[in-house]
Amino acid sequence: MKILSYQAGIPLDPWSPLFNILACYVGFELVRLALPKRFSGAQFPKWRYFGLVALFGSIFNSAAMTLLHQNKLDLFIALGYVIGDMAGFFVCFFILIYGFRFARLLAKVDDA
């Protein structure tokens, strides 16, 4: 990984994983504290909660990565990080949704 990123001209900073974890944690805690208690129950769909956590984590992650790699906050580069993170979130989320639905369908077929 380090060889490939070095050849592409992308610096690998050892602080990147730490900032990624910290950004995800801050995004999670912000959403957890910001949502009222009435939305944390069965009335508020869990997928929206995960989407908000992913969005806020992505915003903090993009700001941290832009500051780390560019030494300044460039909004266009940060927006690229956010778009990439959220696109990856939605692709993985839909794969999980349909994977669980397929597993449920197989369980029903086995029971019949």
Rank of each mutant, 00 (worst) to 15 (best):
residue 68 L to K: 01
residue 25 Y to K: 08
residue 67 L to D: 00
residue 61 N to F: 11
residue 54 A to G: 07
residue 35 L to Y: 11
residue 2 K to P: 01
residue 81 Y to L: 01
residue 78 A to Y: 06
residue 94 F to M: 11
residue 11 P to H: 05
residue 103 A to R: 14
residue 101 R to G: 10
residue 36 P to E: 01
residue 16 S to C: 05
residue 2 K to L: 12
residue 62 S to M: 00
residue 48 R to W: 07
residue 107 A to T: 04
residue 18 L to N: 00
residue 5 S to G: 10
residue 5 S to W: 15
residue 42 A to C: 06
residue 73 L to M: 15
residue 56 F to C: 03
residue 68 L to F: 01
residue 2 K to D: 10
residue 84 G to M: 10
residue 3 I to P: 03
residue 108 K to D: 06
residue 45 P to A: 05
residue 82 V to P: 01
residue 15 W to L: 15
residue 107 A to G: 03
residue 38 R to N: 08
residue 56 F to T: 10
residue 97 I to A: 02
residue 26 V to G: 09
residue 6 Y to P: 01
residue 3 I to N: 13
residue 13 D to A: 11
residue 83 I to R: 02
residue 41 G to T: 11
residue 60 F to H: 13
residue 59 I to T: 02
residue 56 F to D: 00
residue 27 G to E: 03
residue 94 F to Q: 10
residue 24 C to S: 14
residue 15 W to Y: 08
residue 106 L to Q: 15
residue 83 I to L: 13
residue 104 R to G: 02
residue 31 V to T: 03
residue 105 L to F: 08
residue 65 M to T: 01
residue 37 K to R: 10
residue 70 Q to E: 15
residue 50 F to D: 06
residue 35 L to D: 03
residue 102 F to N: 05
residue 19 F to Y: 13
residue 93 F to N: 11
residue 37 K to H: 10
residue 42 A to T: 13
residue 7 Q to P: 02
residue 80 G to K: 06
residue 86 M to T: 03
residue 30 L to T: 08
residue 43 Q to I: 13
residue 106 L to A: 15
residue 84 G to P: 06
residue 66 T to S: 02
residue 46 K to P: 04
residue 5 S to Q: 15
residue 83 I to A: 12
residue 107 A to N: 14
residue 65 M to R: 05
residue 55 L to G: 04
residue 7 Q to S: 12
residue 99 G to L: 15
residue 74 D to K: 00
residue 12 L to M: 13
residue 53 V to P: 04
residue 55 L to T: 11
residue 104 R to V: 07
residue 24 C to K: 03
residue 32 R to E: 10
residue 33 L to S: 05
residue 76 F to H: 08
residue 65 M to P: 00
residue 81 Y to W: 10
residue 31 V to G: 06
residue 101 R to S: 07
residue 104 R to Q: 12
residue 63 A to S: 01
residue 101 R to P: 04
residue 2 K to T: 14
residue 80 G to R: 02
residue 57 G to S: 07
residue 75 L to S: 14
residue 45 P to T: 07
residue 23 A to I: 00
residue 49 Y to R: 12
residue 11 P to S: 06
residue 107 A to W: 11
residue 43 Q to G: 06
residue 92 C to M: 07
